[in-house]
Amino acid sequence: MSGTSSLLPAGFEALEPFVDRWAIAGTANRAQRRTDSSDAERVAFFDAAREVVGPALAQLDQKPLNQLDDKEKCLMNLMLSFAHVAMAVEVQGAAEARHAQFRQLMQITRTPADVDA
């Protein structure tokens, strides 16, 4: 099926199944979702998103951030969640579960991305 996405810009339909869980505003919220998610959820999102992160950022780079429409904002938030998930899947791997308990101590208080989240 080559239907259009109602949630994401054209060309990124493959990420639509991940919007509900991973298109999240706020860095601390994205980091928390990483911690709250299962291994299978993270791997599925990572496998789908790593194929399109380059084109997605290239497309979003065409506009100033404050002019992104709702679909583009959704894609942006997906890519920002992907940054956290990439750390979990690609770098931490099997150590992610043990690691998550210590990460909870590190409370994210602000990032530039939170300004217009």
Binding site: R30, L57, L60, D61, L65, L80, A83, A86, A113
Partner: peptide, 10 residues
């Protein structure tokens, strides 16, 4: 830009 925001988040 989106790429800068991504790089900073990462």
């Amino acid at each position: 830009s989106a790429s800068k925001r991504f790089a900073r988040e990462y």
